[in-house]
Computed example of a mutant assay.
Amino acid sequence: MTDMGIATTTRTQPLAAPVRTASMYTTAMEVATRLLRKYLRSPQLLVMSLASGTIFVVLFRYIFGGAIDFGRVPYVDFLIPGMVMTSVLIAAPGTAVGVAEDGEHGFYDRLRSLPVPHIALLSGRALGESVIVAWSVAITAAIGFAVGFRLHGSVAEALAAYALCVVCGFAFIWMFICVGLVAGNAQSAQGISTVAYPLIFISSAYVPVGTMPGWMRVMAEHQPVTVMCNAVRSLALGDPALAGLAHTTTYWVTLSLLWSAGIVALFAPLAIALYRRGT
């Protein structure tokens, strides 16, 4: 008998690129939902957001309020719109810490292996954080009413002011996502996030910029928080003149939206680049 050899040929096929099966919308919503579930399962986070908002409002309302005579309106009516607007920056460092913690625990490493758009992963984070910002803004506004703030504008203007705060918060979230991706750990992220405080205090949030020294006034007048506070205050008071502002409400709102768009245009691509760099 003759052994008959059977020749076999093995063809090596090139590995196909992973197919992105999940849409951007689905991916973003899943990431946002995961973040909100994590937030709701941590009662201490809800308590801290309430406590921090109360502390800041009470300190400025009752410690500084008696020493400041604004003239046109009670100081509390000038203060609270600025407090509501800056609450988005006071809450936003939590974004940087959360992003850094997810990086430390390998969450992003697992996501990179999935066939999903990278931009959707960060967009979902920003969307979930925006819901948390909306909660913080609502809490601060409620505390403001409790300590004596009263609207001078219409209900529609008040709702527009609330929506503007959330939009501005969404813009700043992208900045803090970048901070979290750069920091590498929660402690560093918390420390780097303190760069937001000069923006908060060197602004029109708590006092008119005209009361500041000349060099500081220039800085305060040409930064986004002042513009955003002026817009929210104009809507809440119904008349920018009551806040000592020369321009119209439309001017301040438009400028705030332009600032927000510019911040997103700068930091969203940077966040995506930082995320991809980690692959």
Rank of each mutant, 00 (worst) to 15 (best):
I173C: 03
E221L: 14
Y206K: 03
I6M: 06
E30F: 09
I139G: 04
L274H: 10
A205T: 11
Y206H: 06
M48V: 10
L36C: 03
M85Q: 07
G124R: 07
G5I: 12
A171G: 08
I139C: 04
A141M: 14
R217T: 04
L45H: 08
T140Q: 09
D109I: 06
V73W: 05
I139N: 02
A146E: 03
W215Q: 07
A92N: 14
A146K: 11
Y108P: 15
L258Y: 00
I6C: 00
I63C: 07
S23C: 02
S113T: 14
F70K: 12
S204M: 07
S154E: 05
M1S: 11
L122T: 13
I200L: 07
L46V: 13
V155Q: 06
L257E: 03
V99H: 06
D109G: 10
L235D: 05
G148D: 02
G184C: 12
C165F: 00
I173T: 14
D239G: 01
R277V: 04
V167N: 02
M24S: 11
L46A: 13
L35P: 02
Y251V: 06
V19D: 12
E157T: 11
L36P: 04
I272L: 10
G128V: 05
L121P: 06
S87P: 05
V88M: 09
T12A: 13
L237E: 09
L181S: 05
F60Y: 12
D102Q: 04
V209F: 01
V131A: 11
P14K: 11
V99A: 07
L159V: 13
P18Y: 09
T248W: 09
V131H: 03
A156E: 15
P14Y: 11
V76F: 03
F172N: 01
V182Y: 15
Y39S: 09
G103E: 01
A236P: 00
A142H: 02
Q13M: 15
L266S: 07
T9D: 12
A265W: 03
C168Y: 10
F70V: 14
L46M: 12
S188A: 14
A51C: 06
A241N: 01
I68R: 03
T140N: 09
L199R: 00
R276A: 00
I173P: 05
R150S: 10
T279S: 15
M29L: 15
P198D: 07
W174F: 02
H118T: 10
M83T: 08
A126R: 07
F172Q: 01
T21G: 06
A91V: 04
A92V: 14
A231L: 12
P74W: 01
W252A: 12
A28L: 01
P115K: 09
V155R: 08
W259H: 06
R110E: 04
M83C: 09
V264I: 14
A96Y: 05
A16T: 15
G278T: 11
I139M: 09
T8R: 12
A196L: 13
R61S: 13
V137E: 02
V218R: 06
Y108N: 07
G214S: 10
V133H: 03
A183G: 05
F267E: 06
S204G: 15
V179I: 15
S154L: 02
V58W: 00
G65A: 02
L237N: 08
T8C: 00
T249S: 12
S234V: 05
S49K: 14
S23G: 15
S203R: 08
V47N: 12
V84Q: 09
I143P: 00
R276V: 02
V225S: 04
L255S: 08
